[in-house]
Structures are given as structure tokens and as C-alpha cells.
Design a binder for these strands. Sequence first.
RNA 1: UCCUCGGUAGCUCAAUGGUAGAGCAUCCGGCUGUUAACCGGAGGGUUGUAGGUUCAAGUCCUACCCGAGGAGCCA
Length: 432
Amino acid sequence: MRQRYYIGDIGDYDGREVTLEGWLSGRRSSGKILFLQMRDGTGFIQCVVGRGDVDDEIFDELAALPMESSLRLTGRVAADARAPGGFEVSLVGAEVVSTAVEDYPITRKEHGVPFLMDHRHLWIRSSRQFAVLRIRATAIRAAKNYLDSRGYVQLDTPILTPTACEGTTTLFETNYFEESAYLSQSGQLYNEATAMAFGKVYCLSPAFRAEKSKTRRHLIEFWQIEPEIAFADLDDIMDIQEELVAEMVATVLSERAPELGILERDVEALKRVEAPFPRITYSEAVELLNKAGHSFEWGGDFGAEDETVLSNQFDRPAMVTRYPRAVKPFYMENDPADDRVTLSVDMLAPEGYGEIVGGGQRMMDAAKLEERMREDGVPIDDYQWYLDTRRYGAVPHGGFGLGIERVVTWICGLHHIRETIPFPRMLNRMRP
RNA sequence: UCCUCGGUAGCUCAAUGGUAGAGCAUCCGGCUGUUAACCGGAGGGUUGUAGGUUCAAGUCCUACCCGAGGAGCCA
């Protein structure tokens, strides 16, 4: 395989002549000297060339080359304090691979959200989007590493499902030959079956919710990583949640420092994200809200503002446990100490980012579970397979779902979730 | 579904009911250390759509379309 050079490794090439392959992302000229900004997907670098350093023909071509043209640039790498990034390349040769058309729409000046979203396929070339999406990939890898290295088996669950978990109003319906099918909202119920077969499992998959939600923390299509563990109680689940989230943050901090720099993220806030995380009950959270002058009545679910007020009370993610029966789904185990509440847990990110993880201990007893399903109007006939997980060797077990995009929004310190996935699907927007 | 705000040049925005403009981008010219470079010049408009009021509508009225922010909703 031929030697290839990447901007991301530029520090390794100090003093050497290299050939970089990439795209022209910016240019400034000062008469007989050109400053070319190049990107190659691993980073950004400034290349400098004076008239006379290369053939006049090539110099003139570079001076007029449209933005986003693709090229190969050859030159010597040198540390230079004047260059953004600390290194620059003094060119000795250049080859244009493809000349772009002249109207590249995204400039260095400001653009509005609708314009950028219409050009999402090009927007992802910009440095901030580059940083966010690289951090996303690293966060996902860190989560997988955490689980894989501890013996979890990745067993992905179906996207096409025959029945609605609860209520069909928020499901996307499609055809499965002669019958209806729905796009999955969660792999959890299937995870419970695979956990009874493999002990510790997880799935990493998209979830689809046809909610008319139009807020900065909702996507119609988003990704979840959902571990499920046999022989685990609520405390075990919380231990795993906090270790997993702490590892994701630590990995991003150590491997994606330049990207966090591009985003101007306050890394001190991220460095505080170490276990143990604060753990409070729902009832304590209600008290906290009321003490904070934010009136809240026991029994309801927290709204966006409630979550913000709560998460601002802590300097790292906080876990809220034991939500009332009414605000949690049928499969949550009852708290033996208080039958009004469930063995559930949500993790709220700090800095006002709200819920990033939801989970808990699952109801173990087949008869009670079936009763709860009937109360919720779940079609029992379609879920006999699920009840089998209790009939044949029920064990205490639990798990959680971690919303990838919500975690990345928080880690990156973004205002809106739409930037954390390459092509967001939102209310009013399915293109590009 | 509801509330609020918005839609004018490729982009970001101006324009008392009275001649549609600026900056950036693009093109042409200048500049040997630029950092969203700078300087000079040029081209670029069915003011979201339809109707209405008026001597006159980007501006006022009505309806619709599209978008943004938020609420509700969201295991």
C-alpha cells in the first residue's frame, strides 16, 4: 500500500516533504503569495506558496481555483506560529484533481439554519460539523468498547416490528407484504429475550418516533445504545450507566481535544464527569424543584424546564430513580418498599441538557406483568413471546437506553441536537 | 395540535404607504505573511403565493404555503 499522509498526523511530519490529498476550504492571497486552507477529513492545514515556488501556470491556477476544488499538494511541513493549527506546508508542487464550479454556497460568513439544513450534504464539510461528527464517532466507539470489553454480546434487534409497543400514534407504519409493520422505537423487549439467552447484551440501532416534537432535543430518527443485563437490579444498572457515560466522556476528552477546541467547549465541565454520579429519588427531585422555587406536584413527569432546573443543581450527570408508576411503561418493576413507584432511573446531563439515559429494572413476575400489559391495553397475543422470557426462568434483570445524539449534544456543548447526526430527520425536514 | 416570530439579490439583513439598498459571496483588477485579510471596479431583484384596500403596497388587510423558536407530546 502506498504511503499516505494525513493532516491529522501533521505533527509527525515536521521538517519532511509530504503530499496531502484533500479539498480547498479557504484562500487568502497577498499578490505574489497565496495562503491555501486545505482539509482532508482528518483536519485542516494552511499551505503557503509564493510565485516562483512552483510553475507560474500552477500558481495562477491555484490563485483562481474555486472553493472545494479537490487537489494534491506537495510541500515541506514546518511548525509556524503564524499558521492556524501551529503547522503549515510550504508548497513545491500541486495537482488539481477536479476544479469545482464557482458557486460553493457555504461561505465563512454567517448563514441561517434553514439555509444550512438545505445544504447539509455540504455543511458537514465545515470545521464545526467536522468536529461534532468526529466526536460522535468517538463517543459511539467508546460506548461499544466499554461493553465489548466487559463481555456484552452485541445482538441487534429488528427495525421492522409487527406490533406497537404502546400506542400507535407515534409509530411510523409501513407495509410488510400483506400486513402492517411499524418502525422500531426501541429494541428493549427483544433485548430482554436475548439477555435471557446470552446474559449481557446490547443493541445499537436507530429508533423512529413519529412525534410532532419540535424542540432542540428531539429527532424523528435517532440512535440508541441499549444494554440489557440478566441478574441485575436497579443499583447494578445505575453503576453500569455511570461507568459507561464517564468512559464516553473520558475517551472524547483524550482523543478529540482538537475537535473540542474547534467547538470552544468548556472541557473543565467535562473533566468533572467522574463516577460516582449523584443519585436522588423522584420524590427528592420533586422537593428540590419546590425548594428551587419551581412549583411541582408529585406524580407528574418532568417537563423540559423541570429537567433543566434539576440538572443545574449538579456539576455532573445525576440519576433520578423511582418514578411514579403512572409516568413509566408497563415493564418497569415495582419498588418493593413503595408500590406507588417503580425501579426506574433516568440520567440527566448537567448544564441544563436534560435526559440522556432512561432505564431500570424490569418486572420479573409473569402474572403481574401480564396484568400490567392488560391495564395498558397492550395486545397480549402478540406478546406471548415476551411473556415467555418470564415463564421460562425469570430472573431479576434490567437495562437502559442511551440516546447517542443527546449525549453528543451535551459533550459538544451544542444548542441543538440536529448537528449531532450527519443527516437529521426532523419534523418538517426529511431532505437532504 | 396550539402560541410567538419570520419569508426582500447566492448568503446575512436594511428600506415613514412615494425611485428596492448595504455588507459578504461571485467575476475583473491591485497587493510577498494572510488569519472571516485588505483596496478599487462590475454584474446580480416576479420582495413566499393568491386576492383585496389605495392615486400609489416590500410596507396595510384576508387566506394559504414554507421556515424558525417554544409548548404539548415524547417507555
